[in-house]
């Protein structure tokens, strides 16, 4: 994935106020659902809405600190990186997020998705 040359394209998806504190909302994209999370400190993170374990929808989990617990079998995933917390192993895709004022945007083209086509290209999984 070579983005160095091109300018980042940000897609506005809504307001931070639309995401509950310690909660999540889903953005549907042609490449699959993206889960947006908001922490108590008002940070926003975006992960592919699929757990590295068995693709559980992470958007439905409980958010605590900067992590989410998967609703299906309770793996804990780092919001910033998509990485599973040890002892579990695996990583789900993450998408760069920008918050300007209250408005939230995603850099979808730079998403490091694990189920999408860039699995090999970005060497991220």
């Amino acid at each position: 994935m070579d983005t160095a040359a091109s300018e980042t394209v940000w897609t506005q998806v809504g307001s931070i106020d639309d995401i509950p504190v310690l909660g999540s909302r889903v953005v549907r994209t042609p490449g699959g659902d993206i889960a947006l999370f908001r922490t108590a400190a008002d940070e926003v993170f975006a992960l592919e809405d699929a757990c590295p374990h068995k693709q559980g929808p992470l958007s439905q989990g409980i958010v605590h600190g900067r992590r989410v617990t998967c609703p299906l079998h309770s793996w804990v995933i780092e919001l910033a990186t998509g990485e599973a917390v040890a002892p579990d192993e695996g990583r789900t895709g993450h998408v760069p997020v920008r918050v300007e004022g209250r408005s939230v945007s995603l850099a979808l083209a730079e998403a490091k998705l694990s189920r999408g086509g860039c699995r090999k290209a970005c060497g991220h999984v």
Binding site: V13, P20, R25, V27, R28, T29, L36
Partner: peptide, 11 residues
Amino acid sequence: RHEFNLLAEVG
């Protein structure tokens, strides 16, 4: 209501 709706649909 937010629980049952998408935040957005893009692309």
